[in-house]
C-alpha cells in the first residue's frame, strides 16, 4: 500500500505540475485565440460589422458594405437645406445657425468639442491642443478675428468637409452636433470678447 501511495502521488503531482505549466494560470496573456469549450452556435453564418466575408457576391470581402456609387442611405442627411449644408438657397453661407441655441445645445456642443476638437484646437480654442506638440502645424486659433467674423455656415462647412490640413468631421458629427459645436465655439469666443462694463456690478466688486 505504501509503495502504491508513493507511486500514485508522484504520478499525480507530476501530472498537476505538467498540466499547470502547459495550461498556465488564469489571466496570463496569449497570442492564441480563445479556446471554445462549447462552440455551439457561437459562429453563425451571418455577417457582423467590420468583419471579413467569403461570400462570393462581395468580392472585396467586406461585411460592412459601402454605399453603391451615387447613392446615400435613407437615414443620412440627404435634404439639401440650410440645416444640412450650412448654405442658403442661393449658395451663400448661412449667417446664423438654423437651430435654436439652448443651454442643452451648448452643453452637447461642449461635450462634442472636447472629444473631437480639443486634440488640435485645444480645450479653450487657442490652437494649442496636444497634437501641436507632436508636429501638428497650422492649427487655427478659434479666437482669431477671421474666425470670429466667419459666418456659422462657413464654419459648419469646414467641420463637415475639413479645410487645408484639417480632416473632415462630418462622419463623426451629425448636422445637429455640428451646430452644437459651433454654438460652443461661439461661447468660447464670447468668453474673450467680454468687456469689463458687461460684468454685473455685484461681481465687479469682487474683481481683483
Amino acid at each position: 500500500m505504501r509503495k502504491f501511495l508513493v507511486y500514485f502521488f508522484s504520478f499525480w503531482a507530476l501530472t498537476v505540475v505538467v498540466g499547470l505549466s502547459v495550461l498556465g494560470l488564469r489571466g496570463s496573456t496569449s497570442r492564441k485565440p480563445p479556446l471554445e469549450v462549447f462552440p455551439d452556435m457561437d459562429h453563425q453564418p451571418k455577417l457582423r460589422p467590420q468583419t471579413v466575408t467569403k461570400f462570393a457576391g462581395f468580392a472585396d470581402g467586406l461585411s460592412s458594405r459601402l454605399p453603391v456609387a451615387g447613392t446615400i442611405s435613407r437615414d443620412s442627411a440627404w435634404e439639401l437645406n440650410s440645416f444640412n449644408t450650412g448654405k442658403t438657397e442661393d449658395g451663400g453661407w448661412v449667417d446664423a445657425m438654423p437651430v435654436p441655441v439652448t443651454h442643452e445645445l451648448v452643453k452637447r456642443g461642449r461635450e462634442r468639442y472636447d472629444i473631437y476638437c480639443t486634440p488640435c484646437h485645444g480645450a479653450a480654442g487657442d490652437g494649442n491642443g496636444v497634437t501641436t506638440q507632436f508636429g501638428m502645424a497650422a492649427v487655427a486659433k478659434l479666437h482669431d478675428e477671421r474666425l470670429i467674423k466667419m459666418s456659422d455656415g462657413e464654419i459648419f462647412n469646414t467641420i463637415t468637409l475639413g479645410k487645408n490640413l484639417m480632416g473632415p468631421y462630418g462622419e463623426k458629427l451629425d448636422p445637429k452636433d455640428r451646430w452644437a459645436v459651433i454654438s460652443y465655439v461661439r461661447a468660447l469666443q464670447l468668453s474673450r470678447l467680454g468687456k469689463k462694463e458687461e460684468i454685473p456690478d455685484a461681481v465687479q466688486a469682487n474683481l481683483k
Binding site: G19, R26, T29, E36
Partner: peptide, 21 residues
Amino acid sequence: TAVAGITYFVTPKYTRVGYQP
C-alpha cells in the same frame, strides 16, 4: 483534481482572459 481543473480552466476567465493577438 478533475473537478478543480475544470472549475479553474473550463471557464471564460481562463479561456478568454489574456487573449492578446
